[in-house]
Write a protein that binds this DNA or RNA. Structure first.
Lengths: 196, 196
DNA sequence: TTATAGATTGTCAAGACTGACAATTTGATT
DNA sequence: AATCAAATTGTCAGTCTTGACAATCTATAA
């Protein structure tokens, strides 16, 4: 006997606007007014649905992580091949050819990470996802090379993910393309270790 | 016939205070007032010596890079051994045991990097240093393993630096220590490729 | 001693942000 | 049609920020 609850609509609508504003103005440079305008709602609604700024930031971290989680899951589901071939496909996915624009999500994730000291809750959220992500990758590598030792699989998974991170982190700087080749080369070299 | 020029004193004094404030409040969260107080000077002096906010940010990037450059240079000078031993020493330096606090400089560098889109000049400054840094590392690896191919040396140098970056980037999240071991393990594995 | 470049301080207006609360509207349910 | 939970809008005071400029002080060279 009341108006329909729009929380499920407004919350992501606002958080996505928040993300775009963070990409454009920085985490603390994005004002509530700008976010509200970007979302196409009145500022008071931000407060209504998400609370004050600090609470919004935590919610933003949760949403970003949620998106990454879904993307990770979907990527893994869509990965062709089995065993070592599957690993190869994963590498192709992680280190695509050409140059790409830094995604809003990556910029936001970076901004959140560099704010972890100020927002410990954000740190907890991010760490949770990181560990989950490493486990997934270890799974793929482990199945790809069942004969490899566990410690080796862990090290290689960590290494490949590191390469991917740094890669996505440096690309916005406009680094020469040669580095992209180095990234994939190093990743392949790491994987070759597992082969024996 | 005038008062002595304090630019050389005040400029770093203010920029270091700026750095600490960025670490504490974020790049755009740090107000000029806070910076002035942290530096122990009046806000008007920030303007006098460094101009407005945007100019201060560029100056901050220059200072941070300058510090990294000096640290890199000093590290290389202090590196013991020759050839492959020197490479080993470098790895020990890059992946120390135990957990450490994230340095103000690292936090600031991260904040600056995630603001590159808003401050293109900052991007130019950072990229310059990155390229320089990669070259230095390639030099060490190349001298350590003269028989290795150039492309291989480049890939390994890029890989090892990537591992180090991600390592310092994730540590503030409070990741389990196992990852630190993985980082060094992967780095060693990469270097071993050059030997073979 | 004095002139002066440059350091330092003071002050101001204009504007932007935030958090909070009151008031109003809406639409499903009964 | 009456009701009521929830959405939406409006408004406000207080605080913070910034850029600018005027005024004052001070140490050195002449």
């Amino acid at each position: 006997m009341a108006r329909p609850d729009l929380t499920a609509v407004r919350t992501p609508q606002i958080l996505d606007a928040f993300a775009r504003c963070v990409a454009r103005y920085g985490l603390e440079g994005a004002s509530l007014e700008q976010i509200a305008e970007e979302a196409g709602v009145k500022r008071s609604l931000l407060r209504h649905y998400l609370g004050n700024r600090d609470e919004m930031i935590v919610a933003l971290a949760e949403r970003v992580v949620e998106r990454y989680r879904q993307e990770l899951e979907e990527t893994m589901r869509a990965l062709p091949g089995t065993g070592a071939n599957r690993v190869g496909a994963l590498l192709d996915y992680m280190f695509p050819e050409g140059i790409w624009e830094p995604s809003v999500e990556n910029v936001v994730a970076d901004a959140l990470l560099s704010a972890v000291e100020r927002y410990p809750e954000v740190g907890v959220i991010m760490r949770g996802f990181m560990e989950e992500m490493f486990e997934v990758y270890e799974g793929v590598f482990g199945e790809g090379y069942p004969e490899a030792e566990k410690a080796q699989v862990e090290a290689v998974a960590y290494g490949v993910v590191s390469l991917s991170f740094t890669h996505e982190w440096l690309m916005p700087l406009g680094m020469p393309v040669a580095y992209a080749r180095s990234a994939k080369g190093a990743a392949k070299a790491l994987v070759k270790i597992l082969a024996g």
